[in-house]
Design a protein around this nucleic acid. Sequence first.
DNA 1: GCCTCCTGGG
DNA 2: CCCAGGAGGC
Lengths: 260, 260
Amino acid sequence: MIIATWNINSVRLRLPLLRQLIQQHRPDVICLQETKVVDELFPVDELQKEGYAHQFFSGMKSYNGVAILSREKLSDTGVHHWCGQRDCRHIAATLRNGLRLHNIYVPAGGYEPDVKKNPKFLHKLNFVEEQEKFWAKQKNKKSMIVGDLNIAPLEHDVWSHAQMKNVVSHTADEILRFTAWQKSAGMVDVMRALIPPAEKLYTWWSYRAPDWEKANRGRRLDHVWMSDDSAGMATRVHVLRDYRAAAQPSDHVPVLLEIE
Amino acid sequence: MIIATWNINSVRLRLPLLRQLIQQHRPDVICLQETKVVDELFPVDELQKEGYAHQFFSGMKSYNGVAILSREKLSDTGVHHWCGQRDCRHIAATLRNGLRLHNIYVPAGGYEPDVKKNPKFLHKLNFVEEQEKFWAKQKNKKSMIVGDLNIAPLEHDVWSHAQMKNVVSHTADEILRFTAWQKSAGMVDVMRALIPPAEKLYTWWSYRAPDWEKANRGRRLDHVWMSDDSAGMATRVHVLRDYRAAAQPSDHVPVLLEIE
DNA sequence: GCCTCCTGGG
DNA sequence: CCCAGGAGGC
């Protein structure tokens, strides 16, 4: 079984590339972030034609938006709200095999890593803290979290640990809360369980760098976590770096997880 | 020798289609309207590579803008201003063969054909009237006017003479002034000299009609006029209707004039 | 409907 | 640099 997660940066604009992903890898489940479309305009028919009869999504105009597409039935679908907002960043569903799947898009956090000056950064930290509290109260059996968590926790999750330490996504504050969340949820970082932490690993490259491929100043912002009791099911992870080089790419690439 | 005129509706966005025009027809001179770009951002280098070493243009941000591209030298280049505005609607240059070429973009005139209610319509009529007076004072030897004149003067310049008679571009007021201008300039309507006036002939189809090709509700808004003493040089005119069916088309198509 | 710029987000 | 939406023009 293959589960994909991808910050697609507009599902409507990226439909051709999404079709390519489907044809090349035939994922059983696809989790999307930043769909940037209200539910009425989500391309339901187009994706049903591609084999995803079961779709659950929560979107809004212009910003955010998450979706779960599945070849098999989804149950107990639900939307989570955070920080008193309804900004379409977190949905969940249970797969046929009983796995509880959470698809999350953490706020990016703006430019300045200062909660006093930058309300977006405050929002990001609060969001992660609320997650930590929520997951601490749950029994997280056979569950997983995927999505754009907008934090690169490890040294080799960024192109330069030293040059990134005051850059939003890799600050000590964020990493501290991120790790606390992961621990409270009892989750394993499956990507790093399958790919050695000493290896550079990125899922995102800025649009702004003209020679992103050569410079390779990437970050691992997209994640796959599995509960302790299910992490053993994961056999392989694929980061589809090529999708960053496609025509009209997203700035994130799809991450594929094979589970047995 | 081939002279092309085309309301390109953004020269930057339409560069691929402009290249196609160049490769298919190799015009010696190209007159563009609605380039929609300030002079600093005009794609000079790209068009030099296509063989147009001599370029003269006058553009502004967002609106209007005219350009003359030529394989051979242009002389006596000049910008004309009308109605007390500097809105980049008229430039002129002299070709190597001595022909004086005017490239004009007449205001569209808005929706309501009423000078009291609609200042854009007033502007259009004033613009044409100023042209009439200007050309009456000139000796117009070996000269031509091309461009988007935004008026379809003849019955078969529109899809329905009856249904268009109160629509801006085909009102009696506009046609009266248009014809007076043409006469004052001593100019021949070369397109209609070469294509019988009884034949429907359009250079523009609205973007808004979804089935423009089938409905075929076009208008002849783009024109080629030559002074009495030079009109005999014109041998053929081509209206490149196919360009309306291209990907990312302009709403106007190129008009090509062959002269000997 | 399509183009422009602008804003706001990344 | 890319994406969405809104306004104004055609």
